[in-house]
Amino acid sequence: MNPNNFELVSTQACIVGESPLWSVLQQRWYWVDIPRKTIWSYDPATQSTHSWLCSEMVANIALTTAGTLIAAMESGIFHITLQDGPAVNASLLAALPEAGPGIRFNDGRCDRQGRYWSGTMFMDMAAARDIGNLYRYTTDDGLSVPVVSQLLTQNGLAWSPDGKTMYLSDSHPQRQLIWAFDYDTDSGTPHGQRVFADMTNMAGRPDGAAVDTDGCYWICANDGAAVVRFTPEGKVDRTISLPMKKPAMCSFGGSNLDELMITSINPDPQTPDAWAGQTLIIRPGAQGIAETLFPLDI
């Protein structure tokens, strides 16, 4: 592919674009810019974008059954209602026990049953502090104890089509691993952690991910200017080159769930780079699975 095959969805480049998400009900895309504390949306029918400003950094979002959002932010997990104007109504659902300077949530999404998952990280990656934890949140049980610990830069959360395999990556340069877990769909408990893929000797680090209907795992190769598809056996069978060096996360959507939105990072906004931080849509020849909604009655 070349840049002419990419659909640029906004002229506003992100600093750290993350958490692309397709709403089947609303037929629109959502994503976030973490440092700018911003939630974005894109309506492909009108080719229009809109943004909302949050009170603190929002790392990832998921859709709820109420037509609203659940979001992992700096101080905890919030219920987000998007207003008509540029602001949001945010109410705290669960405080982050380890909240403090330099710590925030990172990657997250719902499992196939609608449980919300998100992990934490220490933002100064040069410090290489493995204090990140992966949490599960439900309205009945609240925020879990750490389910996976000692993470440097948590990323890559995704589930197989049947929900029985959970994927998780650590994108820190000292790790660059993708793990698979057996996943108990009744209790929402991962076990049997094993290395699914080691990207140490590949171009790019494993960042955000998505799964298609064939059970293949698509992951952004941060610093590698590509998105890579792994088979369920952990073998690379496709690599799509991208015009930006640091793609961050990908997600399937569109009316037929055959589009892949890819967000990216602009590490130095003062350095001219036409593609850094841009949000793109490609059609990779695969079909995704609609995100499960988080059950929420309001």
Score class of each variant (00 low, 15 high):
4 N>H: 07
5 N>R: 02
6 F>Y: 11
13 A>L: 08
16 V>R: 10
18 E>C: 05
29 W>K: 13
31 W>T: 02
33 D>K: 12
44 P>C: 06
57 M>A: 14
61 I>P: 13
63 L>A: 06
69 L>K: 11
70 I>K: 05
71 A>D: 08
74 E>M: 04
74 E>W: 00
75 S>D: 14
78 F>G: 03
80 I>T: 10
84 D>E: 15
90 A>Y: 00
94 A>Q: 04
99 A>R: 09
100 G>I: 15
103 I>W: 13
103 I>D: 00
114 G>V: 03
119 G>V: 14
124 D>R: 13
127 A>K: 15
130 D>A: 15
130 D>V: 01
132 G>L: 09
134 L>D: 11
134 L>A: 04
139 T>V: 05
142 G>F: 09
144 S>R: 12
145 V>E: 13
146 P>Y: 10
151 L>Y: 09
155 N>E: 07
157 L>V: 01
162 D>L: 12
163 G>Q: 08
167 Y>S: 04
167 Y>N: 07
172 H>W: 12
175 R>L: 09
175 R>F: 01
176 Q>I: 09
182 D>E: 11
185 T>W: 07
186 D>V: 02
190 P>W: 05
190 P>Y: 08
190 P>F: 10
191 H>E: 06
199 M>Q: 06
199 M>D: 02
200 T>D: 07
201 N>D: 15
202 M>G: 03
205 R>K: 13
208 G>Q: 08
209 A>E: 12
209 A>C: 11
210 A>C: 14
212 D>W: 13
212 D>K: 08
215 G>D: 11
215 G>W: 06
218 W>P: 10
218 W>G: 13
219 I>K: 02
220 C>G: 00
221 A>F: 00
222 N>S: 03
225 A>R: 02
228 V>F: 00
228 V>N: 01
239 T>I: 15
251 S>A: 15
252 F>Q: 01
257 L>T: 04
261 M>W: 00
261 M>G: 08
263 T>P: 14
264 S>H: 03
265 I>K: 02
266 N>A: 09
277 G>R: 00
279 T>V: 10
286 A>N: 04
288 G>P: 11
289 I>D: 04
292 T>R: 10
293 L>A: 04
294 F>Q: 05
296 L>F: 14
298 I>G: 03
